[in-house]
């Protein structure tokens, strides 16, 4: 079975470490915050200028001056800090954020990522995504392995305009966990019950498959 959105978030949450500063992109990456292991301290960075993002507010706590990068009302955790956009992107571009998790349309064997623009459709902009992929060393891309029409999103070469060049090393899809090295995808783990053959079939870019591919457990 392909992983659910929640299982994808749970799997990524296992990459967290105590004391990590983490930036979670909009969409499935946001769900990772629900699976921070007990006893582990993680600070969430929101690129509009908040380090230590907390839960959504209760009705009584709603404050128009407290929002996250998705423009949702939020709270701050104890020990949070708030700062300007320039300061926020100094953290991001200066490589101070320990882990960045974001979605994508396509990733290729060269570590290129396309995530912000589909030509001919509505063009809204890259927001902070180009800064995040250029500035972070430890990035996990979270996306489905193939489109609804069955077309692979793990490619030899991205077809859409790039968000960043040569910056992606780890990808978690609903079918597999893969790493990118030496111009190839490397299959590291597979979703429970998903065959290696299915992953090979749905991966357009060159894929290295070891003799044994462990199944994820939940």
């Amino acid at each position: 079975m392909a992983l659910s959105r929640e299982q994808m978030a749970m799997r990524v949450a296992r990459e967290l470490q105590d004391g990590y500063y983490v930036n979670l992109g909009i969409g499935i990456p946001t769900l990772v915050a629900n699976y921070i292991p007990d006893g582990m301290e993680v600070m969430l960075q929101s690129e509009n200028g908040l380090l230590g993002m907390g839960q959504f507010p209760t009705e009584d706590e709603v404050d128009a001056d407290m929002i996250n990068a998705g423009k949702q009302t939020v709270t701050a955790v104890t020990g949070a800090s708030i700062f300007s956009s320039a300061e926020s992107f100094a953290m991001i571009r200066g490589g101070h954020v320990d882990l960045t998790v974001l979605g994508a349309f396509e990733v290729d064997v060269a570590g290129n990522i396309a995530s912000y623009m589909i030509p001919g459709k509505l063009i809204k902009g890259m927001g902070g995504a180009m800064d995040l992929v250029a500035g972070a060393d430890n990035i996990i891309v979270l996306m489905t392995h193939a489109s609804k029409h069955g077309e692979s999103k793990l490619l030899t070469k991205c077809s859409l305009p790039l968000t960043g060049a040569g910056c992606i090393k780890k990808v978690l899809t609903d079918l597999a966990y893969l790493e990118i090295a030496d111009g190839k995808f490397h299959l590291i783990e597979r979703a429970p019950g998903v065959s290696v053959e299915e992953i090979i079939e749905k991966t357009e870019g060159e894929l290295v498959v070891p003799d044994h591919v462990p199944e994820m457990t939940f």
């Binding site: 507010p57 209760t58 009584d60 709603v62 128009a64 423009k71 949702q72 939020v74």
Partner: peptide
């Protein structure tokens, strides 16, 4: 006015 774009709340 301070209009809120995405009002998201949790149960108290």
């Amino acid at each position: 006015e301070k209009r809120i774009e995405q009002r998201t709340v949790r149960e108290a």
